[in-house]
Design a protein around this nucleic acid. Structure first.
Lengths: 214, 214, 214, 214
DNA sequence: CATGAATGAGCCTTCATTCAT
DNA sequence: AATGAATGAAGGCTCATTCAT
């Protein structure tokens, strides 16, 4: 007697296995240099099977990006729970981003590459929409936290919450992305690590936001 | 009487024309998706002629990157001349970067993509060396200006000049790079432009650096 | 019930078909002037398919050379069995070479061309090694047969077996190779065929080797 | 006042210089791997100038072949003068071929390659005709010398002069050509040089021809 | 005569995708 | 559902030859 249930489970499991394999290769090499043949081999399936689960190579790529996006969302949500004041939340969001970069560096390049090509993508695409939603979520929470911080007097009141949210969000992602590329230079010029720079960045940002009155 | 000089000019002019054509395509699409055939067609020459002026596609790519690098260096040098205090210089460097982005947005992605692949490049390559030199030049000037600012009391004294230079430099490039990718979102969420965000960023950074003591 | 065996056969058969097609073209034109496009067309498959069976054009070329090498080895082995005296064996090796040329003239040029470029080839290459082994095999058997002939008194004893083996082996391959190129001239000058010349060559060589003492 | 005579000389001299340059490259690399650009550079002239002296790359190739052909003809003519008996002349022709190979090894590959492609060449081509004529000349002289040798009793009389001429001529060219390709193997197997083998070949051939009666 | 920039057909190879089994 | 052989368009690059100067 054939058991049907495990089959069902295998279906979704296989999808994940394929993403796992793709991910690994995309990280090690990069999107362009990874071939469908390699992905199939790494996933332990036939090349044709790939197309039963994903409509194209790009689809596979998006799926990995989405996974990364979810990862960072989860990280932020989890970390933020331990915070109480507005400034704590804002700073924690920055720290989460940094943590994400440290923990899952592979997703970084992929997401960054993805973002830098977003302009050429079809905004109707569900995956593209999803990535916009995640960004929106982050931005929303960030501006709410700033307002909260102004109210609870942990953040200076002479700031524009909306603009600040945008700056912080943009600045942090940019910072994290750039820091990696400069690893060699940091070491060369003053024997400093990316981590030190990022910590200093967080500290500095905190100072900037802090309400120094009374 | 035949003039020989125009010949010479034409030679160099054609080189520039080819770079122009490549540039345009690299900006519109990207390096990988641009073909030599297209470049040739766009430059109005035969494919083989391309190889009379550039040894490979990569060589063409580097030439565009170098052009961008020179552009930003010139901009910084020019702008900095009008500044007198340390903080003015630091802020002006940020502004120059922003100005560069506004003036020559296309170079950005290319340089960024170039940087993100630097890890895989041969550090002996003259072009790679050149790009490192430009970075070093900027970083050097930045840290000197910070020290100058601390001395002339325009910059708060509780900062580490070296680390701060690294943060500012990383942060600004990251900021400028990211801001572009978020253009659509800014507009969507609060009808804001990248320019506004960048201006706000500069303003904020200035506040952070300022020496607020009497 | 599906038969699996034919599948297997087809796989190998297709390989052979491709070699057949390559062979034909390599013989008609030559390696350099034959294109992968032509080979594919002649084999009745797509160009890409070629690379499923052979890793490169060179690989295809080697495969044809190896086929020729095997053919001649087989021929020699088969013919030699019928011989008993040393001189018979030596002469038969020459005859086999001649027979090979008559039977498979196309392989000749290819092997010769291959040999004339051997100097530039990587001696580590399995195919190159293989060709050396075949040569060694022939040379070995030849010198053994000469020694045998001296012992059984069918070959004159005033010869140096090693040197003679080298001369015969070199001379015969050279003879056979050249004879083909002179076909037109033979006919023109004395209405003679390559075959007659080769027969005369064999006869003459036999006379040279024979032990004429009582 | 401009001197016209040197100009005229230069014309032919330049032709020779170009052949010199081609020759050098054809020998070092081979026909296929030599480019017109390299030839021009080596000859110290512009690429276009090449076509003022030679109609095509193939023409250049033929010119080198012809030069080689003339060289060997001269060598044979010169050497033969010192001979008096038939067998001496025959043996000397073989020796001359060997000498040619030793003296001008580069021409060898080229001529051989040329010959192996002769089948595909147009027999109307003047160069092709020329090469046939040279061969004819050699063959003619060879058969005449054999007849002479039979008459003066230096060559055994049980040979067919025509066939023998063809065999010797074919055999010697083949021998010389092959010997070079086997250089490595000779050394490997019995530490012998091509020269030793060729000498042994000449000696053996002499024995074969000699009239051993009375 | 001489030049050398320009040409463009053609080369080998790769790889995402399809489809008969 | 799974396979993997087959496809063929496309890619970067080369080079013998031409031709305007």
């Amino acid at each position: 007697m054939k058991e049907k249930i495990p089959e069902k489970i295998n279906k979704e499991e296989k999808r994940l296995m394929i993403i796992d394999a793709s991910e690994k290769l995309f990280f090690e090499k990069n999107y362009e240099d990874t071939t469908m043949t390699e992905i199939a081999k790494n996933a332990g399936i036939a090349k044709g099977t790939l197309y039963l689960y994903f409509s194209s190579k790009k689809d596979l790529y998006f799926s990995v990006v989405v996974r990364g996006l979810k990862l960072i969302e989860d990280l932020i949500r989890k970390n933020i729970k331990t915070c109480h004041t507005g400034i704590e939340k804002v700073v924690m969001m920055g720290k989460s981003y940094v943590e994400f970069y440290k923990e899952y560096p592979g997703y970084y390049n992929l997401i960054v590459n993805y973002e830098s090509q977003k302009a050429h993508l079809n905004p109707e695409d569900p995956l593209v929409r999803l990535s916009y939603e995640k960004s929106e979520m982050i931005f929303d929470y960030l501006s709410k936290s700033i307002i909260e911080g102004i109210k609870d007097k942990t953040i200076r009141k002479d700031v524009d919450p909306q603009k600040l949210a945008m700056v912080l969000w943009t600045q942090t992602t940019g910072m994290v992305q750039q820091v990696k590329l400069r690893e060699i230079l940091y070491k060369k010029w003053s024997n400093t690590t990316p981590e030190t720079i990022l910590d200093y960045y967080i500290e500095l940002t905190k100072k900037t936001l802090q309400n120094n009155e009374s």
